[in-house]
Simulated scan of single mutants.
Amino acid sequence: MAKDRVAVVAGGSAGVGRAVVSALLDKGYKVAVCARGEERLAAMREEIGAERLLATSVDVADAAAMEGFAKEVVETLGVPSVWVNSAMLTAFSPFREMPPEEFEQIVAATFMGQVNGTRAALRVMERGRIVNIGSGLAYRPVPFQSAYCAAKHAINGFTGSIASELMREKSGVSLALVQLPAVNTPQFTWARNRMKKKPQPAPPIYTPELAAKAVMKAAEGDAREIFVGKSVMQLVFGTMVLPAWLDKKLAEDGVETQKSDEAEPGDREDNLETPAEHPATADGRFGDRASSDGWIVDADLARKVVFFGVPALAFLLGLVIG
């Protein structure tokens, strides 16, 4: 194991990002984390120690602050070889009821946060991998999460464009994109919500540790895109074949699958404008329903199997039957 490997996790104080921090530490990396919430960052410093962790309060939507953070990482820990962009915001809300500034704030954190993180990473990295965190909702959007779905769609286009630029330059840095399913994270406790019921991850639900395992595969491998969980495969290929049917299906029950059985108090605080009070943990409140077993698939390989392997298998089966 190489010594003094350095990694960065933007949005690493809770949820998937926090699980990725643990996975990187287990692999022997020194890790730099940025997030808005100073209390969670302080708890991580105390738990992990300054020798292995740099934890800085930064809003990923602030491009200048992210570049300053990247310089701090180099000065404190060294040049990173892995950079993971994991910060996000969302709101469960009909689009008509969402103020423009709320939509923009979600896009600023979820999409522009990855843009700013990628730019900051490329300013300081010499070689290695930048991993952007996407979602199955980048391929098949759902109602009541218009801003989040828009941001995740944008991440796909942005990542593909920059990946090609880096190939053209023969850069030592490459990009990977990890498309996640519904994960049991604290976002369902602190996201802004205009539904009458508390939000939940639309089943099937997976653990943050499975997501972190996929991120590590992307960080230390060469796949350009990774699908996590069977549900992501269904969303991606289903929307290619039956987009109109899925539109109608989600119109009927796409909102209901995001609702839990618990009533939502009207005065609950959320994390849209300021960080929510919550421990620096990866898991949310649906651990009893979350699975740690799930597919982690090279997306390009999956596409080849679906579009070439299945027709070839059908042809061979026809020959056998004939």
Results as ranks from 00 to 15, higher is better:
residue 7 A to K: 00
residue 11 G to M: 09
residue 15 G to H: 00
residue 20 V to K: 07
residue 23 A to I: 03
residue 23 A to C: 03
residue 31 V to W: 06
residue 31 V to Y: 09
residue 35 A to F: 11
residue 38 E to F: 01
residue 44 M to K: 01
residue 44 M to T: 02
residue 45 R to N: 13
residue 47 E to T: 10
residue 54 L to A: 00
residue 57 S to F: 03
residue 59 D to P: 02
residue 66 M to S: 02
residue 68 G to P: 09
residue 78 G to M: 07
residue 86 S to A: 07
residue 90 T to E: 08
residue 91 A to D: 06
residue 92 F to L: 14
residue 93 S to K: 12
residue 95 F to D: 01
residue 98 M to I: 08
residue 101 E to F: 11
residue 105 Q to S: 13
residue 110 T to P: 02
residue 111 F to V: 07
residue 113 G to P: 07
residue 115 V to W: 12
residue 115 V to C: 07
residue 116 N to E: 01
residue 117 G to M: 01
residue 122 L to F: 13
residue 124 V to T: 09
residue 128 G to H: 07
residue 130 I to M: 08
residue 132 N to W: 08
residue 132 N to T: 08
residue 138 A to E: 03
residue 138 A to R: 00
residue 145 Q to D: 01
residue 148 Y to K: 02
residue 152 K to W: 08
residue 152 K to I: 06
residue 153 H to L: 15
residue 166 L to P: 02
residue 169 E to I: 05
residue 173 V to W: 01
residue 175 L to W: 05
residue 175 L to M: 06
residue 178 V to G: 12
residue 185 T to P: 01
residue 190 W to Y: 05
residue 194 R to M: 08
residue 194 R to T: 12
residue 198 K to G: 12
residue 202 A to V: 11
residue 206 Y to H: 04
residue 208 P to R: 10
residue 212 A to K: 05
residue 215 V to Y: 00
residue 216 M to P: 00
residue 220 E to I: 04
residue 221 G to Q: 02
residue 221 G to Y: 00
residue 230 K to G: 09
residue 230 K to W: 06
residue 230 K to P: 09
residue 237 F to P: 01
residue 237 F to M: 04
residue 239 T to F: 05
residue 240 M to E: 13
residue 240 M to A: 14
residue 241 V to T: 11
residue 242 L to I: 10
residue 242 L to G: 04
residue 255 V to G: 09
residue 255 V to N: 06
residue 257 T to H: 11
residue 262 E to G: 13
residue 265 P to A: 10
residue 265 P to C: 09
residue 265 P to K: 10
residue 266 G to S: 06
residue 273 E to L: 15
residue 273 E to P: 03
residue 274 T to I: 11
residue 276 A to T: 13
residue 276 A to W: 13
residue 278 H to G: 01
residue 278 H to Q: 15
residue 281 T to I: 13
residue 284 G to H: 08
residue 285 R to N: 10
residue 287 G to K: 02
residue 287 G to E: 02
residue 290 A to Y: 15
residue 295 W to A: 09
residue 296 I to H: 05
residue 297 V to S: 15
residue 298 D to L: 08
residue 299 A to I: 09
residue 301 L to W: 11
residue 302 A to N: 12
residue 303 R to K: 10
residue 305 V to K: 08
residue 309 G to D: 08
residue 313 L to E: 14
residue 316 L to K: 11
residue 318 G to H: 04
residue 320 V to G: 11
residue 322 G to H: 14
